[in-house]
């Protein structure tokens, strides 16, 4: 094996990394202690960030990439992959996280966007990216920019699963609809949703997105997580839902089990018992326009 013949940061390595996360729960953590709790509960990866989304909502102001010291502290604390969030379009924050050794970067609407026109050109990076999407067009635009994984956006920090459901149904429903279209109609549809036609054909052929598709934004209970899996998610991100509940250790383990047995109501019933309170929820219809995160980036 000659060193010059090794290839790093290829599309296959990026998508391959994402596919290893399937069937797993990725948990938001803000320090090493939370990261260890997540790892011990069976998380497949942790998402390092400065504040969980519900605190970002409360505190207001500009939300940015986490302090590198915090990210490194979390990397040192666990052996599972560590992801990190950057602002939409902020490719320098992404360069920094790549240098720190983060395993996947989330270009996230939960942070304050740095560019209202362009997302990061993700093909320039060796590290894989995950991006949010609300519908098929948005998902395919992100994949076309180089995203190796998609997560439906939902509405982060609300503890309310309704938007996560809406976005997963959008994407899965659009893909199901493609099966009834011929190639010309698909080309037309691709134009309508502002997505590359080739990627639309690929979705129709495979009956799914070309990359792994997780659910995020509002998952607060084991049943919420199983609901998203039954709707077709490959796995789930849980943000505020774990460390804003009254018993994070129990909640984290219960959500991992619910995802593993997402089609077995007996298991979900068992793990849902005596968990204490889930995070307090918000009615998404009462959010003001500037409090809605999902409309950031398109």
């Amino acid at each position: 094996m000659k060193l010059e013949e090794l290839r790093f940061g290829t599309e296959l390595l990026k998508r391959g990394f994402a596919s290893m996360q399937k069937g797993g729960v990725i948990m938001d953590v803000v320090n090493a202690e939370q990261a260890k709790i997540a790892e011990d509960a069976g998380a497949v990866a942790v998402m390092s960030l400065e504040r969980v989304p519900s605190d970002i909502r409360k505190m207001g102001g500009v939300a940015r990439m986490a302090d590198p010291e915090k990210v490194l502290e979390i990397i040192d604390a666990v052996s599972i992959p560590v992801m990190g969030k950057v602002r939409i379009g902020h490719f320098v924050e992404a360069q920094v996280l790549e240098v720190l050794g983060v395993d996947m970067i989330d270009e996230s609407e939960v942070l304050t966007p740095a560019d209202e026109q362009y997302h990061i050109d993700k093909k320039q990076f060796k590290v894989p990216f995950v991006c949010g999407a609300r519908d098929l067009g948005e998902a395919l635009r992100r994949i076309n920019e180089g995203a190796a994984m998609i997560r439906t956006k939902g509405e982060a920090g609300t503890g309310n699963v309704v938007e996560a459901v809406r976005h997963m149904r959008n994407i899965m429903g659009e893909i199901r609809m493609l099966r009834g279209l011929d190639k010309q109609e698909m080309t037309d549809y691709a134009r309508e949703i502002e997505a590359p036609a080739e990627l639309v054909f690929e979705c129709a052929e495979r009956g799914r997105l070309p990359v792994v598709n997780f659910s995020a934004g509002g998952i607060a209970t084991p049943s919420d997580a199983a609901l998203m899996m039954q709707l077709g998610a490959d796995g789930v991100f849980v943000g505020s839902g774990i460390f804003k509940s009254t018993n994070p250790e129990l909640m984290a383990k219960a959500i991992v089990e619910a995802v593993n047995h997402f089609d077995d109501a007996n298991v979900i019933a068992k793990v849902s018992k005596g968990l204490g309170d889930a995070m307090p929820g918000l009615d998404v219809h009462k959010l003001k326009d500037d409090e809605v995160l999902q409309t950031r980036g398109r």
Partner: peptide, 15 residues
């Protein structure tokens, strides 16, 4: 585990 390092050290090669 993780004998080569983090994801940025992941690679393809002919063995």
């Amino acid at each position: 585990r993780n004998a080569f390092g983090r994801q940025r050290e992941s690679f393809e090669a002919d063995i």
